[in-house]
Design a binder for these strands. Sequence first.
RNA 1: GGGGGAGUAGCUCAGCCAGGUAGAGCACCGGCCUUUUAAGCCGUGGGUCCCGGGUUCGAAUCCCGGCUCCCUCACCA
Length: 648
Amino acid sequence: MGESREKQLFEVRLQKLEKIRQANINPYPPVYHRSHTIQEVLSHFETYLEMKKEVVIAGRIKAIREMGKVSFAYLEDELAGIQLYIKRDNVGETLYELWKEIDLGDVIGAKGTLMITRTGEKTLNVMEWTLLAKCLRTLPIAKEVRDEEGNVIQAYNEFTSQEARYRRRYVDLAVHMNVREVFLKRAKIISSIRKFLDHRGFVEVETPILQPLYGGALARPFTTYHNELKQKLYLRIADELYLKRLIVGGLSKVYEIGKDFRNEGVDRFHSPEFTMLEFYWAYADYLDAANLIEELLEFVALEVLGQTKVKYGEEEIDFKGPYRRAKFFDLLQDATGQDLANASESELLNLFQEKNLEVPDNASLAKLYDELFSELVEPNLIQPTIVMDYPVVLSPLAKRHREHPNLVERFELIIGGKELANSFSELNDPFDQRERFELQRQFRELGDLETQPMDEDYLYALECGMPPTAGLGLGIDRLCMWLLNQPTLRDVVLFPALRPEENEPMLRQLKVDYAIRVGEAVREELIEIEYDVKDANDQLFSRLQVGKKLNQRSWSVLDTPPFGLTADAIQRMFQHLEVGTKVVLLLWNRNPTIEETKEIRYLEFKQVMDEDYLFEQIPLTDEQQERLIEELERRDLKICHHIGYGER
RNA sequence: GGGGGAGUAGCUCAGCCAGGUAGAGCACCGGCCUUUUAAGCCGUGGGUCCCGGGUUCGAAUCCCGGCUCCCUCACCA
């Protein structure tokens, strides 16, 4: 949209680029060595000024103020900015003429000595400047008012569109020094965590991200498929089970910092991919882990911020240990006035009614506890709090409490009303572990989709003998939110997940009506179809909705998987439906080039295990495509793919 | 998925209630200016009003549908 103006601005800058080339200057030179960062120049300003020291700096032009035969500019590198003074008599006629071809956003290097202007601003008196990269696009550079230290006091016309900032983060970074600071500090947070753990004798390891079985947390996974191995794989939801295998193997202190993936909702505290720290510590228990995490967080806060007290919105959070410690059931009792440690399901349900809380679906005892706690207790725990001793049903991988068999030795660290870390004395008894897996299987059969699947190899590992071990997982992104006072996870993640951009205004919807029976029949129906378009820029164009067919032309939408079609998503959706229900798969394609490219694909479902499906994506040739259409017609399945504008 | 807000020039936004030739500032382009700083002064250019449909003589504005983002709730180790 609105491309003509953008194009004109682009053209203008191309012409300037051409003029520079005609002056026999390479606008993209191979290298430019700085003598100082701007921050270094500023911190030694008085000395260098007195010495008349020549400095060489580089960065992006953020402001230009031309005054005839003299010109001012503001040059910014990663952490600081300084004013440039460019005088024709200093840089010479040629360079001064060329200066007129410089735009906001250009990357230049400048050599000169320091000076202070009449109005008292620290300035580089430029003797020579060099274009390092022409900025051909208009960056949304705000006009800023700075104080004497160069801090921005006020900005006008600031680039604030959240969507645009996330989609083109490089522009956001180029234009906002404070955004750069956030990510530089994030890097420091992570490196100081490594520093701390390394000094304590922990060893950093890397475990598989593609896993044949997922586990270590209760969450829905992403699935993928390895063609060569003909194997269904999951993107890990946690590192836990592999790290504990290493403990079995005799590495006694290990940690991993890496991405985990959970196929669930997105909000300011949740992202489909996020960075997790997990450590495992043999011959220690969860109390040791609690002490360690206190020290770790205090260390990180001091290292990154120089203090333990952190502003977060209206609150002030203090990361200095020791943290408040409280027991799960004590906190619940404080909130409800009742001792719920041995409560029955009906007692808990009564409490839901009393407190006007919605009862979750598939309400197991575990879910009820979890729900009560996160509704009534968690939001009030602003300062770091270590919540200890959870009910055993909530924690399939934690060791039973040494004194209370219905509890586990587990704590969660809550900060700002949100979970930051989770830790327990690891369950190393293979018999108990097998029972817990069995229990999870039962929950799964009852319809709970977030259960820990049985992992025989893991049980085998435990049978080899795992020493008593403490383990802990910590959400790095959330830690960054708290430490850096950022309101959403997206502000501490460089490239957050967004829906694919609608860059083609003409929306064409492909629809395929395909009636199938749910239940037994689903397993027999091996062919499903999908329209997908291969697009160099975006694989996420196609989305799928399953609707319940009401009559010939209308349906109600039951579910929309957030990121395209997966076998899991299909399975999950079918679970909503009763046997015999007719459903319609509505396959949309928002890419208008589908007719031109004819790159329609279809999905082949294969029965792998009893209740498990997987699919391969196969691009169709024209011939195959015809065959598919024939096949559908033979089965009396109507294809009404077309392609109206906005037709529903 | 529910509720609320938003989408108009490269950027920040007004105009919409009450339909009548598309606006401002910054940025851009031309001119003046050898210590300016949201530089200033003079002049110019720039639009798929998110997309599609409807009502109307006439739609940025009213109606219907869709898309995206933000907030919030629900879901969510």
